[in-house]
Structure formats: C-alpha cells, structure tokens
Design a binder for these strands. Sequence first.
DNA 1: ACAGACTAGTTTGTATTGCAGACCACTGGC
DNA 2: GCCAGTGGTCTGCAATACAAACTAGTCTGT
Lengths: 111, 111
Amino acid sequence: MAGRGGPAPAEDLQRILDVDRLIHEPARLLIVALLASVGEADFVFLQRETGLTKGNLSSHLARLEQSDYVRIEKSFRGKIPQTVCSLTSEGRSAFKTYRSQMRRTMGGRPG
Amino acid sequence: MAGRGGPAPAEDLQRILDVDRLIHEPARLLIVALLASVGEADFVFLQRETGLTKGNLSSHLARLEQSDYVRIEKSFRGKIPQTVCSLTSEGRSAFKTYRSQMRRTMGGRPG
DNA sequence: ACAGACTAGTTTGTATTGCAGACCACTGGC
DNA sequence: GCCAGTGGTCTGCAATACAAACTAGTCTGT
C-alpha cells in the first residue's frame, strides 16, 4: 500500500526498536560492513581501516565472536601472530537483515 | 566514482563512526522518524505508537529537547496537561543528514 | 466531601557497555 | 643484554538506556 518509496507506516517504524543492537553499534557496524565487503581481514588491517584503538577493536571483535557473527582464526605469519577475521554465515545473514531493516525504515519520503 | 549502487568505499564506511548518536539510538530514531512523519504529536500518542515506557519516553524527549532537536510545548487540553512535541528545524535537518548517511552506507551491493 | 482509580509525566536507581590507556608477550636489531 | 617495534588483551572510568517508583492533579462513585 504505502509502496516502496512511501513513508514507512507506524508498525514498520516501531520495528526499529527490535534492531540488532550488536550490529547497530557504529563501531561494530563498521567492522561488519568492512568484513562483508572484503571477505576477510586481519587485525592490523581492521585497525587501520576503522581507526579504532586496539582495545576497542579487540573488545568489539570478541563480542562479535561470542555471538557467532564473526569467526576469528589465529595463525602465524612467519613467527608473528596474526588474527584473521571473517563473517560467519550467521553474521552475514544478521547484517543482511539489519541492512534491509534499515533501508526500509530510512527509505521513506524525504519529509 | 563508486557510483550509487556500488559498495561504499572504505572512507565512506569509516564515516559511520561519526553518525549522530543522539539520533542513532533506536528509541530516539523512532521518535524522531515518527515526528518527521506526522509533524507533531503529544506524549500519549508517542507512547502508544512507540510502545516505550513513560519514563523512557520522557527521558529521551528531554534529551532531544536539550539538544534542540525537538520542541516541547506544554499546554492543557481542558484541565488535563498535554505535552506536544515537534521537530525543530535543527532536528529535521539532523534527521535528514542521518538518513542520507545511513542510506549511503547501507545502500551498497547485497554482498 | 472523601476515597480510590485514573491520566500525564518526572525523578531515581541500576545494570550495560563503549571507550581509551595501561599492560603483556614476542620478535628483531644493535 | 637492552631497547624499539609489532600484535593483541585487560582494567577502570564515564556515559546512558531502561524500568520502577514517585509526583501532581483530575474524575468517579457513594
């Protein structure tokens, strides 16, 4: 009825409250969007791209791992430890959901 | 350059960190979106539409008022107090900015 | 007229959680 | 051995979202 491009009806708007807070947090949204875009990335790359501090990045990644949104694989590049991160299928799907949710909500008329 | 519809380049993604947290918070996003859509609304209407508790709604409105995003006018409907809320031009503009920011970020390819 | 229920909204307390800086483990040059 | 650099985790503080308790006043029944 309201059609794509029309204002979101109130019930749709209300759903904003159910949005996945884990992904909604800007720092994590950035991480997840980045991972969705590049497939996988190591810690150093993520830190450079996001501009987050190590502590901050580390804790957000830990949280994302706990929730099975991100898979973290620790390995060695030569003798130097390396942490490679990628989205799990859950994470990918959660991001997709989040995105379409957000698009629907934000997609209304310019008013 | 990346063209609308392409993936957002890293610099664009990074800007997620600068989003207006005041609006980004789901409860307030809902309030603001609602106000943007209907023009103005009283407390009771907002509570019904959002499903927020009174306390929650009250404090979010107070915050939005403090930041000059929302104008709050107290009056009486008969003998009963009534609080009417509407977006200020600042609020409207902040919402617009937020929305286009979010659309740009979320608008990339499905990947 | 008084008690109790209801409307409209604010204040208060608590529990998360985001953030940055201190810290730890290891490697490589001198 | 010592100092600098890399890779990453842990800790303490500040912000804040949330709901329950409270305030102020009105309406209803008896």
